[in-house]
Design a protein around this nucleic acid. Structure first.
Lengths: 129, 129
DNA sequence: CGGAATCCACTGCGATACTG
DNA sequence: CAGTATCGCAGTGGATTCCG
């Protein structure tokens, strides 16, 4: 496991109705991994992303990419050729997410075992009362 | 809006089957806000948390607290009195989450408007093809 | 006071199959 | 190649009601 685990991070604000901010949510299940696939700044084709993420079905990958595009995290460029070619690349906004993502991944790597232990310890808790 | 928006952050690893790591997931909808309520290290009673989080129903608050307890983020202390009293307080592990949470919140505050703009701009996109 | 029990709606997301 | 169309389930989390 030399690769850092492909950790997922979500940023959402479910609570904005209390404040004045717009509902705000970023990060579906595969957003983080897609971000990592594109982190070097190079454009990648749909098929390359599929190959890199074999466990993501094309439907879900498309949904993820479209959602990230709508939020301004990446650009989608379709070349009108045959066979078709579509390329995805991070925007500056998308790249700005890599920092927080790394922070979260570092935390998870540092404390993941501890959490696992805690959960294991509580596994044989009888409902106390 | 002097208060920072109570941002939610999730850390999950949906992709662990690829690697050698245990499935790992942290952060349901209200975990972040509960963490913030307890960030000063003081213990708080169930009712205090309820009052601070009026939009969370008691059922969901209980679920959140139990889940955080199982993961080792906080301790639950029940005093056998009448009327009953139960106090929740962060553990060191729970406190260690505050850093990444702050990082994420800072990012969200810095770029939230940008995301909103991008989404608004894409709102009147006709499905291109 | 601090929950538990029950019911239910939504939607994320996976499987499968088909297409310009 | 780069998707779309359909289906369906399981998990989240909200509303409501009741309990020791």
């Amino acid at each position: 496991m030399s690769q850092p685990p492909p950790l997922r991070v979500r940023f959402d604000d479910p609570d904005c109705a209390d404040g004045a901010v717009q509902p705000f949510r970023v990060g579906d299940k595969w957003t983080g991994v897609v971000l990592r696939c594109l982190e070097d700044g190079a454009a990648r084709r749909f098929g390359e992303l599929r190959a890199a993420l074999p466990r993501v079905t094309p439907k879900v990958l498309t949904e993820t990419l479209r959602s990230m595009e709508r939020s301004g995290f990446l650009t989608r460029t379709a070349y009108e050729e045959n066979p078709p070619r579509v390329e995805y690349a991070l925007t500056a906004l998308g790249r700005s997410l890599l920092g927080p993502l790394d922070t979260a991944c570092a935390w998870a790597r540092a404390h993941g075992a501890e959490i696992g232990d805690a959960r294991a310890a509580h596994a044989d808790d009888r409902p106390v009362a």
